[in-house]
Nucleic acid binder design. Structure first.
Lengths: 223, 223
DNA sequence: AAATATTTTTAGATAAATCTAAAATTTTAA
DNA sequence: TTAAAATTTTAGATTTATCTAAAAATATTT
C-alpha cells in the first residue's frame, strides 16, 4: 500500500507527537503541519479507514502498530537522504531539511536499500538522530535534553532539535558541534540559562531556548 | 516558477514529440502519457497561460523558448538521476526509469548542481543520451537511428530508445551493448530487417522494430 | 461537395487535499 | 454547576488533475 505525500506527512508528524505525549490532539497536528484543525480531522478519517490509527471522535488518537511501522519507514528514508546530502553531496547541516522532506516521499524499496548500502548502513544521521533499519528497528541512544542533563556528568552533544541557520551560527559562535564533549556546571533558576564546559576547556552560558534544542548522550568514561 | 509534477510530465513529453514533428497534436500527447485527449486540452490551457507554449485551438501547439528551457531542465534532472542510480547505486540499466521519473520532480537547484558535481558533470547518461548542462545546452552528438545509418560506415551503439527488459534481453542475446562497434552490411526491403556486423566479428540480423530503437554514432576512424 | 470519420474541445463529474464558517462537544472556571 | 472558552467536527467551497459523454471543428472519402 503506497501512501500519498500528504498522508505520509501526517503519519510522520503524529508519530513524533505521540513519542512525547502518548495520545495526540487534532490541534497539535494542525500546529505542527501549519494547517487547519478541519483538515486534520479530514485526514484522520482517511487514516483510520486505512487502519493506521486508533481514533475516536473528540477523544484524541494515536498510530497503531501498522501506523508506527509506516512512520519508521518514512523516518528511515528522511534520515538516509539527509546523510546522503551531507556526507556525499557535501550539503551543510542546515541546508538539507527541505530537500529531504521531498526525497522522503520517493517510492522505491530498491532505491532506499541501495542508498543505505552505499552509505554503509549508517545508524545515525548528521544531526545525530538514529536511523531505523529496514525492519523498523531504531538503534537506542540514551539521549537527553540538555535542560534535563545531570550536573557534572560528562556528555556528548549528539543531536540538535532544529536546523535553523540562526541556531547553527549561534552554536558555531559558541564552538559547539555534534560530538563536542559537554559538562553542565550550573543551572540559573532566574532565566533558566545554563553554564556548561565545552571539551573540558571553554566555559559558556547557554540560554534556556538554546538548551531546549540540544540533546546530549551520557558518556561512560569520565573526563 | 515551480511546476507541478503533472505539468512537468506534459512539458517533457511535448518537448520529445516536437523534436521529431515540429508541431504537436493533442492525441499524440494523450497517447504518450496514456491519458485522455480532454485532459491534454485542459493542461494545454494552463501551460499557455503560464506562457510555456504556442497554442491555437484545433491547430496544434509547440513549446516556446521558455517551455523548451524548462523541458531541458527536467531532462537534465532525469538523466543525472539515471546516471547516479546506475553508476553510484549500481542499478541495472532497465531498473532505473521508474525511479528517475519520480526523482526528476524534486525541486532544488542546489541538489542537482551538487549531484552533477559528484557525478563528475557527465555529458551522457547510461543509455548514451546527452545530458543538458545547467544552462540548458545539450552536447551535440551526431546520433542517427540505425534504420537510417549508412552502409559500411563504422559506428558505435550510443543509445537505446527503450528501457524494456524484453528489449534489453534481446540485445544481450545478440551481444549488443552501448559502445559496441557496428557496421550495416545489408538492408532487406521485404521485412526492413538489417544485417549488421558487431565489433567487426559477429554478423547478426536486426528486425525493423529493434533497429528503430537503436541509435548509432558515426566514428571518425575506420575499423 | 456532401457524407462520413477523425480529432479536438467543451460541459459536467469525481477524487484528493485543502480552506472558512458554523455547529457540536469537551474543558475550564467563575 | 452552569456559563464561557477552547477544541473538534461538520458543512459547504475551492483547486488540481483527472474522467466520460457530447458538441464542435477539421480531415477524408466517396
Amino acid at each position: 500500500m503506497p501512501f500519498t505525500a500528504a498522508e505520509e506527512n501526517y503519519i510522520k508528524t503524529i508519530f513524533q507527537l505521540q513519542l512525547n505525549e502518548g495520545m495526540v490532539s487534532t490541534n497539535s497536528v494542525a500546529t505542527a503541519l501549519e494547517t487547519s484543525a478541519a483538515s486534520v480531522t479530514d485526514m484522520l478519517k482517511k487514516l483510520k479507514l486505512k487502519k493506521l490509527l486508533v481514533y475516536e471522535k473528540y477523544k484524541g488518537f494515536k498510530l497503531n502498530n501498522e501506523g508506527k511501522k509506516t512512520a519508521l519507514g518514512i523516518i528511515r528514508k528522511h534520515r538516509l537522504w539527509e546523510t546522503f546530502l551531507v556526507n556525499t553531496l557535501h550539503f551543510k547541516w542546515d541546508e538539507v531539511h527541505e530537500v529531504a522532506e521531498q526525497l522522503e516521499h520517493i517510492q522505491s524499496n530498491q532505491l532506499i536499500d541501495h542508498l543505505a548500502n552505499f552509505l554503509g548502513n549508517p545508524q545515525f544521521d548528521p544531526h545525530g538522530d538514529p536511523i531505523p533499519d529496514s525492519a523498523g528497528k531504531m538503534p537506542v541512544l540514551s539521549q537527553i535534553n540538555l535542560t534535563k542533563f545531570p550536573l557534572h556528568v560528562l556528555g556528548e552533544i549528539c543531536s540538535v532539535g532544529s536546523q535553523s541557520s540562526d541556531m547553527l551560527s549561534l552554536l558555531s559562535h559558541k564552538h559547539i558541534e555534534i560530538g563536542s564533549k559537554i559538562t553542565v556546571v550550573q543551572y540559573f533558576a532566574f532565566d533558566e540559562s545554563i553554564d556548561v564546559k565545552i571539551n573540558n576547556k571553554l566555559l559558556v552560558n547557554i540560554s534556556a531556548k538554546l538548551a531546549q534544542h540540544l540533546y546530549v548522550k551520557k558518556l561512560n568514561y569520565a573526563s
